[in-house]
């Protein structure tokens, strides 16, 4: 028996390690794609950056600084090594290490994402489960139309309307969320209310729709009919029978929706002037500050893969078929 349970644990561990390895391979492929795109500049990048009037010496110096005198593969290798050791290169625009820029911006973005997640996940799961339980009824149909419309609305419409209502008309909140010296709860609220509201708007709808689909999928299973025929009440059927089976798909839905934050945050940070990593990236794209663009893109992709990995692990650990083979 002890041997059997050890074997079980070993197989679960192997499955988990498999997923982690798969994630790592994907991350490597992603880095190759990003590097390929960002270093595929037509012509001489140094010349382009400095303009036609630059002296040949200056161009040569920049080429050396950018490593353009080495082969693309060697540059990719050096870049990867840098990523692994935390050396993200030097910003062309600010002439400071990219790592320093990221270090000041990343925590702010993570905080914004965390607040959004804390607000959106419970609301979305409640909407999704309730509408699955009452599927086909009027409540479900109206929620369906509402969420369907919400996912298609651009963030800047929500943001502009929010500013118009809360900052311009009602004057309750400041229009910008600079996130400097937050000292009190009310200040925190004033800073985060509108960005979080905007982000939640789309994410809640998306997450609720996926949760609903996952729960309905389970409610159509024959073990649910069996539970009904055992005399179980609807809440018992949904929460004790269907929900445990939907944990894997729901975790996946949450991960995918939160990963949408990574894109949505770009618009929101820029509209509210929030000093996070996404606005850093937008500025870098505008200035064609490639090292910063590369680093930010890798951070976003890493975050995405991490979310998906966590969802996968939740699915594995919640499923007895994968836990006890």
């Amino acid at each position: 028996m002890a041997e059997a349970s050890r074997a079980i644990r070993a197989s679960a561990v192997r499955l988990v390690l498999n997923r982690v390895a798969y994630g790592a391979v994907t991350l490597l492929l992603v880095s190759a794609v990003i590097f390929l795109i960002t270093s595929w500049l037509p012509g001489d990048a140094a010349q382009e950056l400095l303009g036609q009037s630059a002296t040949p010496e200056a161009v040569a110096a920049l080429r050396e600084k950018l490593g353009l005198d080495r082969s693309p593969l060697a540059r990719y290798g050096a870049w990867l090594r840098g990523l692994a050791t935390g050396d993200l290169g030097v910003s062309l625009a600010a002439n400071t290490p990219v790592a320093d820029l990221v270090a000041t911006r990343l925590p702010k973005s993570l905080l914004l994402a965390a607040v959004t997640a804390v607000v959106s996940v419970p609301i979305a799961l409640t909407i999704g489960i309730v509408s699955a339980m009452w599927r086909g009824r009027r409540l479900d149909r109206s929620l369906n139309v509402a969420t369907l419309s919400m996912v298609a609305v651009p963030e800047f419409l929500i943001a502009t309307i929010a500013v118009l209502v809360f900052a311009v008309k009602l004057r309750w909140l400041p229009a910008l969320s600079n996130a400097v010296d937050i000292g009190s709860a009310s200040q925190f609220f004033r800073t985060y209310a509108m960005p979080v509201l905007t982000l939640c708007f789309v994410i809640v709808a998306q997450m609720a729709r996926m949760t609903r689909a996952a729960v309905i999928d389970q409610l159509n299973a024959s073990y649910v009919e069996m539970a009904v025929l055992k005399g179980a009440r609807p809440a018992h059927v949904a929460l004790r029978h269907a929900l445990p089976n939907a944990i894997g798909p729901i975790a996946n839905a949450v991960a995918l929706s939160l990963s949408y934050l990574l894109g949505g945050v770009v618009i929101v940070e820029s509209i509210f002037n929030y000093p996070g990593i996404a606005s850093l990236m937008v500025d870098a794209v505008t200035n064609r500050d490639i090292p910063v663009v590369q680093a930010c893109a890798m951070i976003f992709c890493f975050a995405y893969l991490l979310l998906v990995l966590v969802a996968d692990l939740v699915a594995i650990l919640s499923n007895p078929r994968l836990r006890h083979r």
Partner: peptide, 25 residues
């Protein structure tokens, strides 16, 4: 009253036990 009837007074054995058992419990 139906909740009390089902599984109490009358019970049901389904065709596919593999599908009728909840895999998570």
């Amino acid at each position: 009253e139906l909740y009390r009837l089902r599984g109490g007074q009358v019970s049901y054995i389904a065709q596919s036990a593999a599908a009728a058992f909840n895999p998570m419990k």
